[in-house]
Amino acid sequence: MVSGTPDTRLRGVVQGPYWGYDERTPGPMRRRELPLPQVVLIIEFGPPLQILNPRDSSVAARHPDGFVAGLDDSFSLTETTGVMRGLQVNFTPLGARRFFGVPLKGLARRVVGLGDVLGPEASRLTEQLHEAPGWAARFALLDRFLLKRLQAARAITACVPWAWERLLASGGAVEIGALAEELGYSQKHLIACFNEELGLPPKLLSRLLRFGQVIEKLKAGSFQGSWAELALAQGYYDQSHFNRDFRQFAGLTPREYVRLQLPERGGLRDG
């Protein structure tokens, strides 16, 4: 894994670093990908990653050049043939709306081929990135490509950026009714704007923000209390509320997730 820092002008558009990867395993590698408040762009340099149907593990999609995974509220399964090489860019919801230049309702809960969202630019970009002399050159090329597209970005419905930033700053704790009231809109109108522009309603995005913060803490091993204390610290009403969200988003209980995905972290205590 190689990380690259995006151009500072992409702050608020790209979430975290760029990731370059070159993985070789003795056999197929399957992973559970959790839904987070981000839109993921994958550019493939090797055999395409297979997207599996979570119900029966059948192959649901394969996109040779790469794909875009829109905002979702359920986990997905991916599988490699044993070789995986490419680039990953994680967009913020607003960043993805600006970069792709279309409302995200068409990407929500879907994995779409790169060519279907970028058109002829997809193959050219993949070829240029593959032929670039090293990861630093690839990350610089990505900077230029993203900034060029953003220059032509169309405006987003005005209430959505403001409301999203409020949700983000609060970690998903702001009531949707309060946001609508501050904007002078009805809740119905605000929800419709979010569904159109970002693909998911604001309440569901708030839940994904809270869930994402929980996953960060579990991966970092930075929380030393009990499961109940973690739930309350992240704004859940109680542990059962926390468990319901975890099952919906991860398809596992919190304890199962730590045991299967983060065995080196151990577990939080009960109570």
Rank of each mutant, 00 (worst) to 15 (best):
F45C: 09
R97M: 06
L71E: 03
G119V: 12
V174F: 03
V112A: 10
R55G: 06
Q234I: 11
L252M: 15
G20K: 04
V40P: 00
T253S: 15
G271S: 14
H241A: 14
A220Y: 10
T92C: 07
V39N: 00
I43E: 01
W164L: 09
L204A: 08
K203G: 15
R9E: 14
Q88H: 07
P17H: 11
R244F: 03
V13E: 02
K219G: 08
S58Q: 12
L125E: 05
V39S: 04
E197M: 01
E121K: 05
R210F: 08
V59R: 08
Q234D: 11
A132N: 05
L129A: 07
L36S: 09
A137M: 08
A231Q: 04
P54I: 09
Q128V: 09
M1C: 14
A169S: 13
N90R: 11
S123D: 06
A192F: 05
Q50I: 01
V214Y: 02
V102C: 10
L107I: 02
R166Q: 13
L141F: 03
A153W: 12
G212W: 06
W135S: 03
L146N: 00
P254I: 01
V83F: 13
Y21T: 13
S3Y: 15
H241T: 08
W227S: 02
G171T: 11
H63S: 14
P6W: 08
D116R: 13
E33P: 03
T157Y: 02
G172S: 10
N90W: 10
K105M: 07
I191R: 13
D116E: 15
A137H: 14
G225I: 09
L147G: 07
D73T: 08
Q224V: 08
A220H: 01
F194L: 05
R98C: 02
D65T: 12
P37D: 09
R207H: 11
G106Y: 08
D270W: 09
G115P: 02
P254L: 07
S186L: 12
H189R: 09
A220M: 11
L167R: 01
V89H: 00
A228F: 05
G251V: 06
E165Y: 04
V59L: 05
N243I: 07
R62N: 03
L71A: 02
G177W: 01
P201H: 01
V59Y: 04
G235N: 09
E196M: 05
W164R: 03
Q261W: 02
A250Y: 00
W19H: 12
Q239D: 10
G95I: 04
K105W: 12
V258K: 07
L34R: 02
E216D: 15
V214S: 03
R110T: 00
D7P: 10
A61R: 12
G95P: 01
S3Q: 15
E229L: 15
L77G: 13
I156D: 00
E127H: 14
G271Q: 14
G12H: 04
E196T: 10
F242C: 06
R31P: 04
L183S: 06
V89K: 01
P26E: 15
V102F: 08
L262Q: 02
I51V: 15
E264C: 06
H130Q: 14
T126C: 12
E196I: 00
D73E: 14
P93I: 07
S170F: 02
S222K: 06
V2T: 12
E197N: 04
Q261V: 11
P133F: 11
R85D: 04
P93Q: 00
N243V: 10
F249M: 10
E197C: 03
A233T: 08
G172M: 07
F211M: 13
A137E: 12
Q50P: 00
